[in-house]
Design a protein around this nucleic acid. Sequence first.
DNA 1: ATGGAAATTGCAAGATATTGCAACTTTAAC
DNA 2: GTTAAAGTTGCAATATCTTGCAATTTCCAT
Lengths: 249, 249
Amino acid sequence: MLKKERQALILREVNLHNKVLHADLSRQLQVSEDTIRRDLQELSEEGKLVKVRGGALSKSFHVYSYKESEIYKYAEKTTIARKAVTLLSDGMLVLISGGTTNLEVARILPPELQVTFYTCSLPTALQLAEHPNSDTIFVGGRISKNAKISTGGQVVTTLRDIRPDLCLMGTNSLDASLGLTDSDWEVVEVKKTMIQVSDQVAVLSISDKLQSTQKIRVCGIDEVDYLITELSPDEPILAPYHQAGLKLL
Amino acid sequence: MLKKERQALILREVNLHNKVLHADLSRQLQVSEDTIRRDLQELSEEGKLVKVRGGALSKSFHVYSYKESEIYKYAEKTTIARKAVTLLSDGMLVLISGGTTNLEVARILPPELQVTFYTCSLPTALQLAEHPNSDTIFVGGRISKNAKISTGGQVVTTLRDIRPDLCLMGTNSLDASLGLTDSDWEVVEVKKTMIQVSDQVAVLSISDKLQSTQKIRVCGIDEVDYLITELSPDEPILAPYHQAGLKLL
DNA sequence: ATGGAAATTGCAAGATATTGCAACTTTAAC
DNA sequence: GTTAAAGTTGCAATATCTTGCAATTTCCAT
């Protein structure tokens, strides 16, 4: 039995049953478990299966579904969140958007801070509700299934009645010339209003979202006051934003 | 059974049901509870679930979980939820309160059901947002930290503008003579309004909450139309409610 | 064909990982 | 507080992995 032939049989087996054991393969193919182990090692390096202690699992079985976006670039988001918190002080009225970066802000909020938060994001609101000293007000409306935020005319109407000191705006895309863009028109409608009613606007963005654009425009770069990324403010990539008048954090 | 395989199965389970118990997993997977504990520990460190006393919660669920102890009495709550769902039909406008039993209703909702839900509960809203065909409208207001629901005058004002077909009301305490009671005045204010504006009211209650009372009255037994418990309608303990005119499910 | 380098294979020993158990500590429910 | 359930820690038994090595096979240039 050739090595390639044996490995092909192993692959067929793992794709059929989702898992294979050293012991079974050793018996079926009449080679030592060491050989099987080495085969699985190679196949694993080629990315054809996932080796685990005692055998191997098919890729499809192993790559189960979990929300990758929530743990994606977690460290960077925490860095951004810590910077954003420095903009907050007692007594402020803060409008905070959805997104995982703002969720992180809500999570690391200093316990003694006394701020009134307005938000349209269900996850953010839930996290804010854990805070001992800050108040949270949820702006009601029809819940958008994707973004988990309230949308629609009711949201716009409610927001027009308040005048927040600061808006913490998470974003998918920011470009030095085109400004803030997004892909979901319902989200854009809400974001536009949030920015219009707020005294100051801070955009929170992981650096790899800079220089990218989406289909729908939210606002120009001139309506943004702060840009918060995980990078140091003197990074060259941030220079265009500084020249556009944004304060970097 | 391979360790990784077992962990993959655990993840599948937790993502499906939102919660898992040591004891159940131990039995299903035929390993000791210690092993399950260690698996959950590892998965938790990898950020794939959240470990809690007695088991684990899915990441998405934990964000809006009330107390960790709420994973108990899960079977009873599912039973109640399944009964409650039978009251729903396409086109209805349904007002749904907070609480873990209603959260369970939201989770097991048949996917093809087309209902418009109004709710004040953040956790319930998040779960409802997962539903493919039903709409969810969140009634905005100041978020009560304990109950994770919106409260205050704005809620009452918004609710007075709608006329729901049915109100699914979770409860802490129900008594055949004193009616519905609760311990948090902000919650009571919202519940009162929900019951007043709704055409029909169904109270969802685990049987051990029957015959108990709290400090503040929500409504009399005569304002309730349905009582849904995990027990069979012919249980003697339910007789007083039947005599009071409630339909038992 | 055939000598010899390279690859493959099986084996063994030491290292590491997994698992269940038991003693002990912590937690939370009453 | 008291108590029962759950969690933690250390440990021993077992299983699996790694590594080096020697025996064997394959391959290819002579």
